[in-house]
Design a protein around this nucleic acid. Sequence first.
DNA 1: TTGATTGTTACCGG
DNA 2: TCCGGTAACAATCA
Length: 264
Amino acid sequence: MPEGHTIHRFARDQAKLIAQQKLHITSPQGRFADEAKLIDRRKLNRIEAAGKHLFYHFSGGRILHVHLGLFGKFRVHENPPPPPRGAVRVRMTGKEKTIDLNGPNTCEVIDRAEYQDILDRLGPDPLRKDADPDRAWKRIHASKQPIGLLLMDQSIIAGIGNIYRSEILHLLRIHPRTPGNEITKPQFNKLWKLAKELLTLGVKHNRIITIDLKTLKKSIEKTPRRKLFRVFKKPNCPSCGGEIERFKMASRKVFACPACQSSS
DNA sequence: TTGATTGTTACCGG
DNA sequence: TCCGGTAACAATCA
């Protein structure tokens, strides 16, 4: 199951794995679906991540756009690869490894204009150097919507998902129901900095980590996933021990400590 | 077999 | 217009 930050790992790692790629795109969407089979003869110039989106830029201006959604998964095999498991949408074969993609929300071949449309509707991504946090601040400051909802809106900040939302707000002691226009500039600055740090850490270790690593006894790899969180799916608050409340916001469960995270 | 899920979009009613 | 709620879609695992 994908986490928002993992897409940035793929952008970084896959380029090496499929340097001399051969792509087999089995059921693409988009206006250039018919043309998709030609992509394996084109040069892959670069792989780019923006928010939770992945773009494979090919010579000739065609771009393969992938969004993993909830279920999308990349599997990496040694060559020669096993037969495709399930509905493999893209198989990318490099010199030594083969990467299969299953279950993506989006797998389409698009052109530069469509690519630009997607970038334009994404907010700043804390993992990108070109991110402008001020764009996010303006949207949040102007909104009466709860911050728990705003953090899930990819047009405000791109890349934060359901786990990071609960975790970041708990670390900042901000209740998810706090309206955006009640968030102060210093609070927003901390939020942006924290999002950047946590997402970067997530990319580094390929896990979502929001606890203090100094308190960890075992290695990160050997620690069960849920022990790397603070409040997500937890019964009790790591700070005060009180009961964690859970409720739906943006159709997803959010977790918060009513004592530590004051409402405004 | 059922339910839950680290996501997004479209649509509808108030 | 804005907001919240709901459904649809993808695939896997416990």
